[in-house]
Every structure is written in C-alpha cells, then in structure tokens.
C-alpha cells in the first residue's frame, strides 16, 4: 500500500561480495604473516642478523635496519601486534560500548539524557588524544595498556551507536510481541536486540579495527605504545625516520603494511554493509 513498497529493492550487488572478498584477502595476508610469527620468524627479531641498513637481498628480503635486524621479521611481528591491538581494542570497546549503549537505551529519560550527553562529550575528543590520556594515567607504557586505552577510547562511539540502534529496535512491534509472548527483558536483548543491531555494529567494528591500528601506530610513533622489543609498525617508522633518505625501505614497508591492513578492514566493512542491507531491503 505504501509508495515505497511498490518500488523494487535493488538486488544485492556483485560489488558487495567483491569488496568483502578483497577485504578478507588483504586481512588474510596479515593473518598469515602474523600467525606465522607465533611459531617461526625468518630471524631472531632482537638479534643482529646482518650488516646495518643493508638493501634487500635473498637472505634479507626487505633488507635490515640500522641495528642490522632483519626488517621482514620486524614487519611480520608488526602484523601480529597490529592484529592484537585491533582485535583487542575492538573487543574491549564492544564490551564496554554495547553494555553502556544498551543501558542508555533502556534507561529512564533522565539517565538516558545524562549518558547521551556524557558520550557526546567523550566522542568530541579525538580517539588518539583519549588513548594518550589513558596511557598517561597508567603507570607504564605497555602493549596491554595501549590496547585497553584504545578500547576505552573506541567504546564511546560504540555506545552511542548501540544506543541509537537499540532504541530503533525497541520501537518495533516484535519487541512488544516478544513481551506479550512472555519473553523476559534479558532474553529480548539476546534474542531480538543483539541479532538485529549486530550487522550494523559489525560494520562499525571493522572500521574501528582499522582506526585502532592507526591509533596504536601513532602511539608507538610517539613512544607511548608497545615498548621494545615489540616491533610495532609505528615504532619501526619512528626508528627509520633518521635514515629515511639513505634507506627509505625502512619507512616505506611498515607504512605499506599498515595501509594494506587498514584498507582491507575498510573493504571488509563495506562488504559487510552491503551484505546487511538486502535483508532489510525486503522488510520495506
């Protein structure tokens, strides 16, 4: 009967599945490299494996850094750290954010207003600045601190998104129908709200993964991230800064690795979004 119901929805595009696959492939490169380092690395990451700043060769595919360490090894370890940071920050951000967001969605008008205002203020701070504040507040810089800091910084965005999405779902008749079917509020959250907000949240998580990886690289670049011997890409960049004219690869390669991962996550997010949409499409 509605005007919109008469308009056929666009079919799920091929492009959607393509971006998803490219995203997964780019992420896959890092997953393979990163996981590999758990069992094996080409060289001992801390040891002098060859001459200083040597160019790429058969022995050292990406050359060596100014201390003579194998650069390929460092970048592979960087993959592992980046994945840990991204996944860790997103999980922490999701746990805090989704909980807060749901709380706000269910809260009384007053509490909801207070929470919403607090979240808006938090979001006004750049993620990096927020993370730096958390790191500064903690005793020492470590990989764990950086992950927690980034997770907390991301949680405000997750909370606000969750609140809006959950409120939209709560207004649907199927929530009332669930209530009159005898479903308790906690079960309503797990059976109806979370499954229905998940597709949109997951797109956001993929984007935030990339955001967290960049933010951690920035923290490490500033010396606030994972301390040595953790070869974060940000620290690799910082170390290569002095020799960027004589041995540019030391700066270029970590940069490329970072870009591949972030673009991969963005593609993944795009693909997930296209996938989430056709389902909604049929529901007018």
């Amino acid at each position: 009967m509605t005007t919109i119901a008469d308009i056929p929805q666009a079919k799920p595009s091929r492009r959607g599945s393509l971006t998803l696959r490219v995203g997964l492939a780019l992420l896959g490169i890092h997953l393979v490299l990163g996981l590999l380092t758990v069992f094996w690395t080409p060289y001992d990451p801390a040891a002098m494996a060859g001459g200083r700043l040597s160019p790429p060769s058969l022995a050292h595919w990406a050359g060596t850094d100014r201390l003579g360490r194998d650069l390929m090894t460092q970048i592979m370890i960087g993959s592992r750290i980046a994945l840990m940071v991204g996944a860790g920050a997103v999980v922490i951000g999701a746990l805090i954010g989704v909980t807060l967001g749901l709380l706000a969605a269910f809260a009384t008008r007053f509490l909801d207003d207070v929470l919403a205002a607090a979240l808006d203020i938090l979001i006004a701070f750049p993620t990096l600045l927020l993370a730096m504040l958390v790191v500064a507040a903690s005793e020492s810089a470590s990989l764990g601190t950086a992950i927690v800091a980034l997770g907390i910084a991301l949680s405000a965005i997750v909370a606000r998104l969750t609140r809006i999405l959950a409120k939209r779902v709560l207004a649907q008749d199927y929530i009332t129908a669930a209530r009159t079917s005898g479903t308790s509020w906690p079960m309503v959250v797990f059976k109806h709200i979370l499954p229905n907000i998940w597709p949109t949240l997951s797109v956001n998580f993929a984007l935030q993964f990339g955001l967290a990886v960049i933010a951690e690289a920035s923290l490490s670049y500033l010396g606030l991230g994972a301390p040595p011997p953790n070869a974060s890409w940000g620290r690799l960049l910082q170390e290569a800064q002095g020799t960027v004219y004589t041995a540019p690869l030391g700066a270029i390669l970590p940069g490329i690795a970072l870009v591949i991962l972030v673009i991969g996550m963005n593609f993944l997010a795009d693909g997930l979004r296209d996938r989430a949409d056709p389902m909604r499409g049929a529901a007018r």
Partner: peptide, 8 residues
C-alpha cells in the same frame, strides 16, 4: 493493491 504499480 500493493505491488500493482499504481504509485509508480
């Protein structure tokens, strides 16, 4: 009715 194409 719905889907008849009347609005289109």
């Amino acid at each position: 009715e719905s889907g008849s194409g009347k609005s289109l």
